[in-house]
Structures are given as structure tokens and as C-alpha cells.
Amino acid sequence: MTGVLLIDDHAMFREGLLLTIAKADPELTVHDVASGHAALAAVHEHADISSVIMDYYLPDIGGAALVKGLRQLRPGVRILVLSASEDPDDRQNALAAGAHAFVHKSADSRTLVNALACVRAGMPWHEGATTVIRVPPLTPMRSAAHTDEATLLSTLTPRQGEVLRLVCNGLRNREIADHLGMTERTVKAHVSAVLTALGALNRTQATLIARRGGLFGKPQ
């Protein structure tokens, strides 16, 4: 199942959001925390988290700093900021830091559901949008269609493709470095680039995309 991380320090508001999201998409697994530090720990612990709904002002880490921290920890994560702030600079700073949408807390549940669906689907969202988009469960963070996965694989460089093949064969960075005659640091950079290009959360999900996309022949 696909996971969403909900970050808000107000328990009652957070519980209301949990009910709204569960009703809108029962297939989603929602993890909820009350602070920035807990959010970073949750992303580290739960590989299924592919999108985040976060309050902009939290008691410990908040604002653009948390957006950047989440994206550094998981580069492909999709972030929706939900805030009571009326300051246009907050919105600009959040988006500049890597957030994909900024929704005011006065918005109704339909607006929130639509914004989350757009963010998860990689589509632009703008204030005032009313059409609710249904997003099927993602595996891992994109559509599981073979054609989409084959297209993702085609964006890799030849060297990234070689690295991905070895990752799929279960080799670790040091082993890949020895096999390809490069440094372990370079391999790590290639692996990170591959995960970002494929929208994968980890090596296991990258392997699934590679096999389904036909890296080893007929798509599986």
C-alpha cells in the first residue's frame, strides 16, 4: 500500500484529517506525527511513505527547513503544505524549498482531497481547483503500467543502466564499484540518480520497476 505522512501538532485537527483522508481513499496507509523530528524519523522508518501533508509551523522543525529535510531524506517524496498562514512569503518559501502545493487550513475537505490527489499524481494544483482526481494505488510512487516504467528506464544513461542491473542482481555499492572500476562514492551518486529518475523509494522498488519495465527482457 502507498503511505502518506501527516504532520500536525494539533491532535484534534490531525484526527480530523485522518478521517477525511481515510474516507477519500481507503487504500492509503496514513502515518501521523506531531513534530518535525518525528516526521523525519517516520520517513526513515516507513519505506511506503511517498507523500506528505505537513503543517508549516511546528514546535521544533518547521517551514522550509522541514520541507528541505524531508526531500533530502527521500528525494522523490511529494509534499503538500497545509497552513493557517496568510503570509505570501510562506507559500513562496515552501514551494521554493521543494513543496508541491500550499493549501490554507480554511479550505474544505474537498479542496484538500483534490490537492493531495494532484500532488500524488505529479500534477499541478492551484487554489480554486474543484475537480477531484482519483489516484489509484501507486507502486511504488508512480503508475505501475509497463509502458510508463519502460519510459522511466529509457531516461537513464547507459552507465546508470549498468548500475541498475547490478543493483537488481543484489550487489552492494562496494561490489558494484569493483565490478565497474569506479569509486564507491561514484556508485552511490549513480544509485541516487537512478532512484530519483525512477521515482523509487529504495533499491527494492527500483528493482521492481526495472523488471516490470523490461530491463531484463520481457516486462514482468
Rank of each mutant, 00 (worst) to 15 (best):
P137V: 13
L40W: 01
I79M: 11
S143Q: 07
L201P: 02
G3V: 02
T186M: 08
T204Q: 02
T183W: 05
D48R: 04
Y56R: 05
L198P: 07
T196K: 14
R165M: 06
R142F: 15
V113L: 05
M182P: 02
L66I: 13
P137W: 06
G3N: 02
R212T: 11
L95P: 02
I7L: 00
S192N: 14
M123R: 14
L153Q: 08
A94W: 07
S106W: 13
H126A: 10
A206T: 00
A41I: 12
E175Q: 12
H100Q: 15
E15V: 12
T2N: 12
K23I: 07
I209N: 07
G199M: 02
Q72T: 15
T186H: 14
R110T: 12
D48G: 03
S50Y: 10
I7V: 08
V167K: 01
S85C: 09
R78W: 06
L116M: 06
T130N: 14
K218V: 03
L95Y: 00
G170L: 02
G170R: 02
R14Q: 05
I61Q: 09
R212F: 07
H44E: 15
G214L: 00
S35W: 03
L80N: 13
V132D: 02
A206Y: 01
I79Y: 09
T131H: 09
G128W: 04
V132N: 01
L138S: 03
L70S: 06
L153R: 09
R211G: 08
T155E: 09
A64L: 10
Q160A: 00
S83Q: 02
G16S: 03
A177M: 00
K68M: 10
T139Y: 09
R142H: 12
S192T: 11
L198N: 08
N173T: 14
A65E: 11
I61F: 07
H104I: 15
V67A: 11
E86Y: 11
R120D: 05
L208I: 05
T130Y: 01
L82T: 07
H104D: 05
L198R: 04
H100Y: 07
L198W: 01
T29R: 10
V103S: 10
A210Y: 00
D89F: 08
D25Q: 08
T147K: 05
S50D: 15
G69P: 02
L215N: 03
R203N: 04
V103Q: 08
E127V: 14
G170D: 03
M12T: 15
T183K: 02
E27Q: 11
G63K: 09
R74H: 04
L180A: 00
S109N: 14
L58H: 10
A197F: 01
G76E: 15
M123P: 00
K23H: 14
K188N: 09
L138H: 08
A11N: 06
N93C: 12
R91P: 03
H190S: 10
